[in-house]
Design a binder for these strands. Structure first.
Lengths: 136, 136
DNA sequence: TAGCGATTGTTGTTGATCATAGCAATCTCA
DNA sequence: TGAGATTGCTATGATCAACAACAATCGCTA
């Protein structure tokens, strides 16, 4: 079947993102996490006592949509909230959260390595800079 | 804010795809189309009398989800169905469909050109081959 | 220091997207 | 001719993100 979409970088970007996201989601599912949850955990680890609002801004997730996301992580005992002042609350990793993040990192590191391995060597080093230019 | 996600190609892929998809969606919205609809129109144009099932396979869209997609294009008068045999029906572009696809192509061509222009020259030619390797 | 605008966390709702299961009609091929 | 595969479709549920609204609180400034 003739496919005029094959030549469009924008289309390839869509398909590549979908395909890889599905694979990563499947692997993270084995430890009960999703990409959004892992993103939050990684950012909380790197920035102790961040607020939900700041996380949302960094991840481009609406404040309102952070609520169920954080609630699930909190219910799972992975993060804890600590009041900063009367209206803000800082997020911290719990000890189980630290264990979980170690497992998640192992999955992600393997995944990213395999992802890069699929790219022919002569294109490999250009991927990240090119993608960054598209959204930063 | 420290961002450990910045080094991950998989994350950059996600963000780049989201950002560019949102921009393209906004532009296609001005002529009343979505990416999925344009994909269908382009494939129907390149493959007259394709079936809905074949389109779904090519685009990785479930048969069931093709129904509302095609219905909207048909209600808008952009495509028409012609029975092939008792159970299959071939899809064709109508004259208004051909006009619409010309406008869509103008938008897409401009969009793809701008997208590539954002990528630094030394990385530009590596983008499509690298992305193709990730999902084909 | 009193007040006003901005910020935070939250609720509730909506729309879009996608997966799944099932079904009747039809085709294909042995 | 009969069995299995295919096609188009209905119906349903899950998930996700956008949006509007709200009370409480913060921070700056007049």
């Amino acid at each position: 079947m003739r496919d005029p979409l094959a030549l469009l970088p924008g289309y390839a970007l869509r398909r590549a993102a979908n395909a890889t996201a599905a694979q990563l989601a499947a692997r993270l599912g084995t430890i009960g996490l999703k990409q959004s949850g892992v993103s939050v955990l990684l950012l909380v680890e790197a920035n102790p006592a961040v607020t939900a609002s700041a996380l949302g801004r960094q991840l481009d997730i609406q404040r309102a949509n952070m609520v169920p996301l954080l609630k699930r992580l909190e219910d799972a005992g992975l993060i804890a909230r600590k009041p900063i002042d009367g209206k803000s609350q800082g997020l911290m990793l719990t000890p189980p959260g630290r264990e979980m993040i170690a497992r998640a990192r192992a999955i992600i590191d393997l995944f990213e390595a395999e992802l890069l391995a699929r790219v022919p060597a002569q294109h490999r080093d250009h991927l990240l800079p090119a993608l960054d230019a598209l959204w930063r």
